[in-house]
Design a protein around this nucleic acid. Structure first.
Length: 269
DNA sequence: CTTTCAGCCTGACGGC
DNA sequence: TGCCGTCAGGCTGAAA
């Protein structure tokens, strides 16, 4: 499941691979993913050159000439690949973008939670997103101040994309463990010192995950289909019932906001 | 305003 | 063998 590191890796690869190419033809093979796909065929994408590919939160924006954009989100199981046209279409590949170097940008999504929409101008829905965690905007002061009015759990607060983007279930578990903070704690009761530890852990762990090529859990793959190496560095996520790597206490699992949350009851207070 | 939660969707897996 | 229930989970929109 792609979180910020995985989306960042895909974005970088896509930028270097397709920038400067022209979209010659769009093909769809399903009526919809999260939203209907038919509008892609009538959006006037054919003949436009790709100017840039960027990331905002977990969204990928493909900028084309004439200020047309493709807004993409990989959801839970989305995979983007750039491959020769001769490779047979996979069962859950829903969109082909035929590119001017005769390759295909292929959008696969098993569960169809992904998003791919054409926009005139920079996508408006990105305006409401919170700060980027790997910029100076995401500071201990910001996180602490924003948390004051949230009575819900600090884990759900950390995953709130209106506050800061890109931290999903995997990295929330990892960063709270690294910061020594229990996911069950109300966000408004976190101290300034703990806010600083959480912010530092988010920056450190997301950066390390990008360096390691992301975490391949279930569906995530690189543009060339290879897997990330960060999965085996995950210390809490997916380790319920096992021994904490620091103190040996059995890792507990609870449900928060409908999602399973692993933590060490001794290391995280 | 915040917060919770069902629903979207398919595949893997366990129990019978 | 195969059927059923559960889980995985980002995001949306409705309800509380």
């Amino acid at each position: 499941m792609p979180e910020l590191p995985e989306v960042e890796i895909v974005t970088r690869a896509l930028r270097s691979r397709v920038s400067g190419l022209t979209i010659e033809k769009v093909e769809i093979f399903s009526p919809a993913m999260r939203t209907p796909l038919a509008p892609l065929l009538s959006a006037g994408l054919e003949g436009r050159k790709i100017v840039d590919v960027a990331r905002r939160g977990r969204y990928i924006t493909v900028e084309m000439t004439g200020k047309k954009y493709l807004l993409m989100h990989l959801g839970m199981s989305g995979v983007l690949r750039v491959e020769p046209a001769a490779v047979p279409r996979r069962k859950h590949e829903h969109i082909f973008f035929h590119l001017s170097d005769k390759s295909l940008l292929r959008f696969e999504c098993t569960r169809r939670f992904s998003l791919c929409e054409a926009c005139d101008g920079y996508p408006e829905k990105l305006a409401g997103l919170g700060v980027e965690p790997l910029t100076a905007d995401f500071s201990a002061e910001y996180f602490f101040a924003a948390s004051r009015r949230h009575s819900g759990s600090v884990k759900n607060f950390l995953m709130d994309n209106a506050v800061q983007v890109g931290v999903g279930n995997i990295y929330a578990a990892e960063t709270l463990f690294a910061a020594g903070v229990s996911p069950l704690r109300p966000a408004c009761e976190i101290s300034m010192d703990e806010a600083a530890k959480i912010v530092a852990a988010v920056k450190r762990i997301l950066s390390a995950a990008i360096e390691a090529g992301g975490s391949s859990i279930r569906d995530y793959r690189h543009l060339d289909g290879s897997e990330g190496r960060f999965s085996r560095l995950l210390r809490m996520y997916g380790h319920a019932g096992e021994a904490c790597p620091v103190c040996g206490t059995t890792i507990e699992q609870v449900r928060l906001g409908g999602r399973s949350s692993c933590f060490c009851p001794k290391c995280q207070k």
